[in-house]
């Protein structure tokens, strides 16, 4: 949309509707991995182990609470959550201000040569953090979206008491629901079948995320350093049927074989955001937009739409649109009807 406006001056014939086609979803932005998980789940151990691997070199780490374990040979900044009352009256738990300041300072220091160059950021959230505000913070250019791109939300959950935690705490359930990847930790000190028992419960909450068990935080570093959600396409798109979870959170996937016209889709999403933005916890998809060569990646987090990105080529698999919704109380049928209604109205123009 912005890209379309900018392209009016000095348009490039090799650019797509949404600007320069990107080799990957993050383009040239700094990849960010958000590591979340309930208190004592083993987030710090996981991050510490990652930093010790070759893939962890050049990683800046932000924690929004000081963990009990020290992180050696890494950049360490402190950032604390803040609750910000936005002007529109919507109360968003936002750790935007500190996170933004910390990340902007990191980039500035890197440019000045005051700190070593880094090519990745890992954010370790506090145990009680809801990942949604973090994702929101990265959604717009004005905040951090111009420089950073959230490649993955990784949720760590302890094998032994993870089941109890997600049953008892809404924050823990939210962390699982919004995850791209889930790490079952501390299997070494858990009952033998703890991970097997926990996995179906996690899949029930989040069928899209990949789940893996890790002892002592030892996780294949590719899970963090190569966590492109596009590459996770198969898992991301696994869910076809609508699933309703606890807390009224539900998830579903819309698919479409024919190319989609961009304008009606954009108008429908604007309407959805205007009416139920607060309840759109995460919406993400690869769209086959009419007139575009590559897939167009769209992402919405609550009221905010990421700028769409056209990739240079479709990933392996068939060319069709898929859009995953994780919502609070917004159902598949309502969204499907809205999209169809706007499309029908647009067709009459």
């Amino acid at each position: 949309m912005n890209a379309t406006r900018r392209a009016r001056h000095f348009p490039s014939p090799s650019a797509g509707r949404f600007g320069r086609r990107q080799k990957r979803e993050r383009g040239a932005r700094i990849p960010v991995t958000v590591v979340t998980g309930f208190l004592g789940a083993g987030k710090t151990t996981l991050v510490k182990h990652f930093l010790e691997t070759p893939e962890g070199a050049g990683t800046a780490v932000l924690v929004n609470e000081f963990g009990e374990a020290g992180i050696d040979d890494a950049l360490l900044r402190n950032s604390t959550e803040k609750t910000v009352l936005l002007g529109n009256g919507c109360l968003c738990c936002n750790f935007r201000s500190d996170l933004q300041v910390a990340l902007h300072r990191l980039v500035a220091d890197r440019e000045r040569g005051a700190i070593p160059h880094f090519g990745r950021v890992v954010i370790e959230t506090s145990g009680l953090a809801d990942p949604s505000p973090i994702l929101t913070t990265f959604a717009t250019d004005r905040a951090l979206g111009g420089e950073f791109f959230v490649e993955a939300v990784i949720t760590v959950i302890a094998a032994q008491d993870g089941g109890k935690t997600i049953k008892k705490f809404a924050e823990a359930r939210r962390q699982v629901m919004l995850a791209d990847r889930i790490v079952i930790s501390k299997t070494d000190i858990a009952d033998e079948d703890a991970a097997e028992t926990l996995t179906p419960r996690l899949r029930d909450l989040n069928p899209r995320a990949r789940v893996i068990a890790a002892d002592y935080g030892r996780l294949d570093p590719a899970w963090i350093a190569d966590a492109s959600s596009v590459r996770d396409g198969a898992a991301f798109l696994a869910e076809a049927a609508e699933v309703e979870h606890t807390d009224e959170v539900r998830s579903f996937t819309l698919t479409e074989d024919a190319p989609i016209a961009w304008e009606p889709f954009a108008r429908a999403m604007e309407t959805l955001i205007a009416l139920r933005g607060a309840d759109l916890l995460r919406v993400k998809g690869l769209l086959d937009i009419a007139g575009c060569k590559g897939p167009v990646v769209v992402q919405f987090v609550q009221h905010i739409a990421h700028p769409p990105v056209e990739l240079a080529a479709w990933p392996e698999g068939e060319r069709k649109s898929r859009l995953v919704f994780i919502t609070r109380g917004v159902g598949e049928r309502e969204v499907r009807d809205l999209l169809a209604a706007v499309r029908a109205l647009a067709a009459r123009v």
């Binding site: 890197r110 000045r112 040569g113 005051a114 160059h117």
Partner: peptide
């Protein structure tokens, strides 16, 4: 002070 980081970059 501005030269405390290594100068090489591959980004």
């Amino acid at each position: 002070p501005l030269r405390s980081g290594p100068s090489n970059v591959t980004w």
